[in-house]
Design a protein around this nucleic acid. Structure first.
Lengths: 209, 209
DNA sequence: AAGATATCTTTACGGCGTCCAGATGCCCAC
DNA sequence: GTGGGCATCTGGACGCCGTAAAGATATCTT
């Protein structure tokens, strides 16, 4: 039954709205930015009434959280690829570059992701959890592969956190116009990002004072 | 006439609203957070009609910009003190700590500051300008005092930018609950901040590979 | 077949940012 | 000093927002 998702994906009276809402949200986000992302606009874009989303999300924040979660998954995938493709010695840098590039290519989504995180005063557990191979663990394990002492837990966590902070700070800063001269002087955005990373001591303290 | 600014600062029909509005905004910000900071709430708090602010600010964004600017000035002052008080060898770290502490002590204000910056896609020129001794220049000059080559302009700017990114990233991240175990393990928030900074190579490349 | 349930619509409320037409008090030219 | 011009403030209105309640409609269970 239910002629179901053809190209146009008509979730008529029943169907998988939730997914349609999230897709609508992403469309609005890319087309008009984060400020245009209202619950009503999402419902409108998905072709339903303004109250319909409330059967799938408790409130607007929960919808935003779901959008953000998709973003985190995309970021995770991106970092996984980066780690796979890079030379062993380059893996840490590649992870950082992948992180920042994702943020730079999806600025609206990245903003939604961190707005949600700041509201919750926490990053999503899938990102930072110890259980699975979260992005956090990817960075940490890479540090071990690079020679960090796996027994020095606190030291490891500090190094991983420092790297994450550096990547996030760079991701937000890199969008500011003030740095365009510097980018040009270095021959583009990517060289700029690499140069900044090179200036940050992202490796764990293996014998540094 | 106009019994004028007694303790309660009654800017009746005339008086310096603008200042009163900014003070009201800051009061709301501290008491109820950034989400409660609406134009109407500010007007209400200042005791004027919802349309009154429009004679002093083009729109809400301009009011927010003005609030943010106050924040940047506070941050500047804070960093100036930190630089003065610290031992020469500690100046750079002290600047970073001062930056992050300000953000942690005024999270709502810090959020307004960077929300405005992200909207404008630029930090305020007073912060980052080359002309006066902006915070940016404070950091850069400190690097020179620490032995960086003042002639290597690009290198200097990279190092300064890297330091700013690190501080901003840490400032936002430090509020997340995930890091509380780590903070406790290190004996508080300040040791945590110092430890993270220690893991970041914030000094310019003087002879590093 | 029928009742229960999940989904969606309609309608409504208060708050928001913003604009416009007046009212109000101040300041300066005469 | 006084009267006109101007900056400032008010009141009311508009359309958008998030959200809630009540009613309609399709699906699922039995």
């Amino acid at each position: 039954m239910r002629e179901s998702q053809t190209a146009e994906a008509r979730p008529y009276h029943h169907g998988d709205l939730r997914r349609a809402l999230l897709e609508a949200a992403r469309r609005i986000l890319e087309a008009e930015g984060p400020t245009a992302l209202s619950l009503r606009a999402v419902a409108r874009e998905a072709g339903v009434s303004p109250a319909a989303p409330y059967h799938h999300f408790k409130d607007k924040a929960e919808l935003l959280d779901a959008v953000a979660e998709q973003g985190w998954e995309m970021l995770d995938k991106r970092m996984a690829e980066a780690k796979l493709e890079a030379e062993p010695r380059d893996k840490l840098n590649s992870l950082g570059i992948a992180y920042v590039c994702f943020a730079r290519e999806n600025p609206a989504l990245y903003r939604v992701m961190y707005d949600a995180a700041r509201d919750n005063e926490a990053l999503p557990e899938e990102m930072v959890g110890d259980n699975e191979d979260s992005p956090y663990c990817k960075v940490r394990d890479t540090m071990i592969e690079l020679g960090a002492d796996p027994a020095a837990r606190t030291e490891l966590e500090l190094a991983t956190t420092a790297a994450w902070c550096a990547a996030h700070g760079l991701a937000e800063m890199a969008g500011f116009r003030q740095f365009e001269p510097l980018k040009e002087a270095l021959g583009g955005e990517l060289p700029f990002l690499r140069a900044i990373f090179a200036h940050m001591g992202l490796f764990p303290h293996v014998g540094r004072t």
